[in-house]
């Protein structure tokens, strides 16, 4: 894992620097045009750690990363990358975390249900439904929900859901009820989009594993043993079928941090994905770099978590 992290760090350092031209210059010219004087440029370059040889820069970069210091955002200068990440990461974890929990729960139950019914008409209908949902592009669903539930449909002249943002500008952030209600109200549409498009994936995975497990020899044995149905379900079917699903969930932790950035962008939800989108459109390299690093690290940790979970759930797997 250490090696993986090191390689990730190095790539993250090198990639933006492979872009030809002086990035700082390009961006600053964009912003301030010809008002800049050469001495300003020197000052800014030194602040952005862009001076010195590549190796020196690399050394500085590693030290900075170790201090969770990713430099300053070009675009939101003088705000630091880490403070932007610190502000947006909780929103993403909140949105994607709750979406994942809900999707997994719905998916596992839905999938178990159709898995048990495999071969029936009901199953083929429900499976087709899940496949259709899972193939909906989520930006399309997001726009559709936004259009209908937040713009077109009104009840007594009031829109059902807000179009954008994480909470209303009329509430003060903090542990007060109006704020919490506003947060939940704003969460609804992006959450719905994510749940509707991701739970079918879990459901289909669960269904497939259940069907596989039902065909295993130990299931025939469990039937022959005259075990109670609840025991067969819990200890024989679900217990074995949960293994692949848990891997898929753990791997999605990486995706959680990465954010479903198009959904966040559409709903202007101030999470990591939204920031990444902004950073990309504004050529804000330090911010892109910082966000990529966070995403990469969370994917690496997610993989590590998969190993841990697997070792815990599956006695055939041992940690080395």
């Amino acid at each position: 894992m250490v090696v993986t992290i090191f390689i990730a760090l190095t790539l993250n350092f090198l990639l933006p620097r492979l872009i030809p031209g002086n990035i700082a210059l390009t961006i600053l010219f964009d912003k301030y045009g010809s008002h800049l004087k050469p001495q300003d440029l020197k000052l800014i370059e030194s602040q952005l750690d862009l001076h010195g040889s590549l190796l020196q820069q690399y050394q500085i970069y590693l030290v900075q990363v170790a201090h969770l210091n990713f430099g300053y955002s070009f675009y939101n200068y003088p705000e630091s990358v880490s403070s932007i990440i610190a502000q947006s990461l909780p929103w993403t974890i909140f949105l994607l975390g709750s979406a994942t929990v809900i999707s997994v729960l719905i998916g596992v139950f839905y999938g178990s249900y159709i898995g048990w019914k495999s071969g029936t008409r009901q199953e083929s209908f429900l499976s087709t439904f899940a496949i259709t949902l899972s193939s909906l592009p989520y930006f399309w669903l997001a726009l559709l929900l936004q259009l209908f539930l937040a713009v077109v449909i009104t009840v007594d002249g009031v829109h059902l859901f807000p179009v954008a943002l994480a909470y209303s500008t009329s509430v003060t952030p903090g542990a007060n009820l109006p704020f919490i209600l506003s947060v939940l109200h704003h969460l609804a549409l992006p959450l719905m989009t994510l749940v509707i498009t991701t739970y079918p994936g879990y459901a289909l995975l669960m269904r497939n594993t259940i069907v596989n497990v039902l065909g295993e020899d130990y299931m025939l044995m469990a039937m022959a043993k005259g075990l109670r149905v609840e025991r067969i379900r819990k200890r024989y079917v679900t217990r074995n079928a949960i293994l692949p699903v848990s891997t898929s969930v753990a791997l999605s932790i990486g995706y959680i941090v990465g954010g479903a950035f198009i959904v966040e962008e559409i709903f202007s939800y101030p999470g990591i994905g939204y920031q990444l989108y902004q950073a990309v459109t504004n050529f804000d390299f330090p911010l892109i770099q910082g966000i990529f690093l966070i995403i990469t690290l969370s994917v690496i940790f997610a993989n590590f978590a998969v190993d841990l979970i697997y070792a815990f759930l599956d006695p055939r797997v041992t940690l080395k």
Binding site: E216, D217, Y218, M221, R235, L313
Partner: peptide, 10 residues
Amino acid sequence: GSMNSLNPVM
């Protein structure tokens, strides 16, 4: 083939 008829997680 009763070697496959044991539940692997129990």
